[in-house]
Design a binder for these strands. Structure first.
Ligand SMILES: [Mn+2]
Ligand SMILES: [Mn+2]
Ligand SMILES: [Zn+2]
Ligand SMILES: [Zn+2]
Lengths: 146, 146
DNA sequence: CAGGGGGTTAGACAAAGTCTAGTTCCCATT
DNA sequence: AATGGGAACTAGACTTTGTCTAACCCCCTG
């Protein structure tokens, strides 16, 4: 289930700083490097993958900081946390609303345009509660001949 | 996050055996006890909760067997595995198609009628692939005043 | 120069789940 | 009756993912 380097790409430092700025996050060196890596493209990375990538690069970031930073990014809405594989959390760099196709054979996660899924109104939800998000995951896999 | 006994109820042994039978699962004592507990009502239990319940009852079942059995139940489609909190898997005894409301404050999972969730055609899905299921999770929580 | 707060770090720790090796049980064959 | 084999169960070691703790660094401010 561990996919390759996937053609690494880094967001220009300039833009990473801007993203942190807009979410009220103090722009430290480590946070900037994590943002540059994660937002270099639309992708779904686990903390483990980010940690591995950073450890090869010149920018060394500790495990604790990777986890702290990703939690911070998620809390402030900078990144979207996606839970599917029960053994791992993924961080989604695609900021637009969308859903996911989960390939059970490869463990890969693919984006799906939200237009393809329509959700009706929700029944009575207490006024004190609010909808924080709607996650739609379409699981696909090799046809199991019945 | 650990909720109480929740008014324990057991499925009659007769019916548990029938369920196992219908899914081609050999009816051992342990599997039967787990089925009786899980299917005693519509609910969402973690392996941990099942293990805890069984350890108090007269039927003693080991950790390995609880996990093995739940995996077996999920593979054969007897039970539905629901992943939300990445640190725990839930096993859903409600066999009917439905979606979930996840209360982020309590960690509780609530069933939602499958209402209108329409999936459009998925482009570029190879003929060798099939949709295994669609999971919709609506995350709700206390209104965070902004 | 002293104090304080935010941030980072290594490594200890915790929790969920898997794996291993030994055992029990059942049934079929001799 | 004895033997053999396979399926299932078990305790406990182990792995993986993520959190916590305590020390440290750095910068700012008084
Ligand atoms: Mn945003
Ligand atoms: Mn079924
Ligand atoms: Zn995505
Ligand atoms: Zn349910």
């Amino acid at each position: 289930m561990s996919r390759g380097p996937e053609n690494l790409r880094l967001l220009p430092r300039e833009q990473a700083l801007e993203m942190l700025e807009q979410h009220g996050i103090a722009p430290t060196e480590q946070r900037t490097e994590i943002a540059r890596l994660l937002f270099g493209r639309h992708q779904h990375l686990s903390a483990e993958q980010i940690l591995a990538q950073l450890s090869t690069s010149s920018a060394r970031v500790s495990k604790a900081t990777v986890y702290n930073t990703l939690n911070l990014f998620a809390e402030t809405g900078l990144v979207r946390e996606v839970v599917i594989d029960s053994t791992k959390r993924f961080y989604d760099s695609n900021p637009d609303p969308h859903h996911h196709l989960f390939h059970t054979d490869t463990g890969r996660l693919e984006d799906v345009a939200p237009a393809r899924v329509q959700i009706g109104e929700l029944p009575g939800l207490p006024a004190s509660m609010e909808v924080l998000g709607v996650d739609v995951v379409i699981r696909v896999g090799p046809r199991r001949d019945s």
